[in-house]
């Protein structure tokens, strides 16, 4: 705040507008705290030596000048101890479309890296930046965010503290989640919390579900409530051997650049193919991944997964019977 330590003497103020100086001084004071007429007068005289006391009407004109420029200042009333309160000011930053675009591009990139923590921190920073933007920049920012980050779930939609959820994951706590499922409505799900992820713009909590005997993942923005629970010892035994070992081969000349994830290892490779072993904790997600590889991928074992893939592929052909028939 520029006027903080500046004291002026009237006789030195040549070639300046003393009225403007006083009004800027009032703005500076109101940015720090609400003030009454007499407090404004007293502080003005401290800042500008030899300055005469101002009438209430003059102060009112000064306040109106600040209002005219865009400051929102509440009237002094009994309720606010007859003080002027600065609610908002127009001194915001103006960013160009390309500057805002640079922020959006890096946020988009962080999403592709799956770095959920940094994504959350960036969204928090974006909220703070949004407050500092002028109306035009705000509009531009909202528009570009909506267009280019259309799939990103806004952290404002989380009803639960993400730091606390992270803590539960780090401690592998048993938690009961009240989940708003799009299929079955609100329901309680008990999981042993494992990790948080960011995939395709959505934040998920992963954990072992005692009900379905498999690792499951739930969208954070659908979670209504979470509470810690104590489970009996025998329930915890269900956790043994939860991952299913699957072997598959993937053609090297496919459109994919295969990089093994944490649960996959390359057993063998030749000029044409990778032979991969995966520890599958969520069958649904794994099968989705295998299907997306198309004809580049073939399941080797176990037979149950192989049959499931064949069944799904046959079901898929049903929609295209017109082509098959011709």
């Amino acid at each position: 705040m520029p006027l903080k330590n500046i004291k002026h003497e009237l006789k030195d103020l040549d070639n300046v507008s003393v009225t403007a100086l006083r009004i800027i001084s009032i703005l500076d004071m109101l940015l720090k705290e609400p003030l009454s007429d007499s407090e404004i007068n007293q502080k003005l005289q401290e800042n500008i030596k030899d300055s005469r006391a101002l009438s209430k009407d003059t102060i009112c004109i000064y306040i109106n000048t600040l209002r005219a420029i865009g400051c929102e200042i509440l009237r002094p009333t009994k309720n606010n101890e007859y003080k002027y309160i600065l609610k908002s000011n127009p001194f915001k930053l103006n960013f160009s479309q390309e500057e805002i675009n640079s922020l959006i591009e890096v946020r988009k990139y962080i999403s592709t890296l799956g770095n959920w923590k940094l994504a959350v921190e960036m969204d928090d920073l974006f909220c703070q930046l949004h407050k500092q933007m002028n109306q035009e920049s705000k509009k531009l920012f909202t528009f570009l965010k909506k267009a280019d980050l259309c799939r990103e779930i806004d952290i404002k939609n989380f009803s639960q503290d993400i730091d606390l959820i992270e803590k539960y994951c780090n401690e592998n706590q048993n938690i009961m989640i009240l989940y708003n499922s799009p299929n079955s409505g609100e329901k309680e799900i008990v999981i042993k919390a494992e990790k948080l992820t960011l995939e395709n713009g959505s934040f998920y909590i992963w954990g072992y579900s005692y009900d379905i005997n498999e690792t499951t993942y739930l969208r954070l923005d659908r979670i209504k409530a979470i509470k810690l629970i104590n489970l009996k010892e025998n329930n915890n035994k269900a956790l043994n051997n939860k991952a299913l070992e699957v072997k598959y081969k993937l053609a090297k000349n496919s459109t994919f650049l295969f990089v093994p994830s944490g649960y996959e290892i390359i057993l063998e490779e030749n000029d044409k193919e990778f032979f991969i072993q995966a520890q599958v904790s969520n069958k649904f997600k794994f099968i989705q991944g295998i299907l997306s590889y198309g004809s580049s991928c073939t399941i080797i074992s176990p037979e149950s997964i192989k049959m499931e893939i064949i069944y799904k592929l046959k079901k898929m052909t049903e929609a295209y019977q017109d082509i098959y028939l011709t």
Partner: peptide, 18 residues
């Protein structure tokens, strides 16, 4: 009712801020 000169100076400040 406003101070015209002060308004112009504040307007200047507002735009130089952007």
């Amino acid at each position: 009712k406003v101070s015209s000169t002060a308004y112009r100076i504040l307007l200047l400040l507002l735009h130089l801020n952007e």
